[in-house]
Design a protein around this nucleic acid. Structure first.
Length: 224
DNA sequence: GCGACAG
DNA sequence: ATCTTGTCGC
């Protein structure tokens, strides 16, 4: 099926796919390859709509970059809170199809089931690729949580409509927590575990940091 | 009804 | 997301 053209169609699609998501699956062993995905946008008058997506695959043990790819294109869908996937997926999927390696888990910049309709970008990406996915957000989108301890590793469940949809997780002592939620084929514990293994010196996972840098570089190059 | 609202 | 300098602190 093709991508929805309107927010109404997009919402309908999310509600149709949401029940296929599996977030009760423990990750089978420690992942060997972890991927990060991100998209950068141009905001000027004449570059309006220009986007650059990037996917970076790291060796989970050493955090060395095993493979990376980027692609510049046009955003076909407007940014609407709750519908981020429809803006970023086309570019990310194109990149995904050209990858030589198959990561064991993908870290998305955004949310999984911690979403108004329980179907964030990470769920959608996981469903379409069949690979375990989860999301790490920098700010809260839905839900609320108790205060998080000050030490790295401390966390508090993110509650939404009576359910635990994610976790506010402190990845660095004394630094604002990030918001982790399962996307597909992984559970919350696994997602938090992987997140901690990817955050040694920074608040955000090394995967998203690398993908963020690559997407920005690709966008810069495309505009110059 | 009003505000808030991943990136 | 993006526009942006210096500055406080480990």
């Amino acid at each position: 099926m093709t991508f929805p053209a309107t927010p109404e169609e997009a919402i309908a699609l999310q509600e149709r796919l949401r029940d296929r998501v599996r977030v009760d699956v423990p990750l089978p062993g420690n992942p060997a390859l972890v991927a990060g995905v991100d998209v950068a946008y141009a905001d000027s008058e004449d570059t309006e709509g220009l986007v650059a997506g990037a996917i970076v695959i790291l060796d989970a043990a050493t955090l060395d970059v095993v493979e990376s790819a980027s692609l510049v294109g046009r955003a076909e869908f407007p940014y609407v809170p709750g519908l981020l996937a429809f803006r970023e997926l086309p570019t990310l999927l194109s990149i995904w199809e050209g990858l030589r390696h198959r990561p064991d888990v993908v870290v998305c910049d955004g949310y999984g089931v911690a979403h108004p309709r329980r179907f964030g970008l990470a769920c959608h990406f996981g469903l379409l690729t069949g690979v375990p996915t989860f999301g790490v957000g920098k700010t809260a989108f839905v839900g609320s949580h108790a205060p998080v301890g000050d030490a790295r590793g401390a966390s508090a469940d993110l509650m939404f409509e009576g359910d635990v949809v994610g976790r506010a997780l402190r990845t660095r002592t004394g630094v604002k927590p990030v918001f982790v939620s399962a996307g597909h084929l992984i559970d919350l514990d696994g997602a938090c575990s992987v997140t901690l293994s990817l955050t040694s010196g920074y608040r955000l996972p090394e995967t998203t940091r690398q993908a963020d840098r690559l997407s920005r570089d690709a966008l810069r190059t495309a505009m110059s």
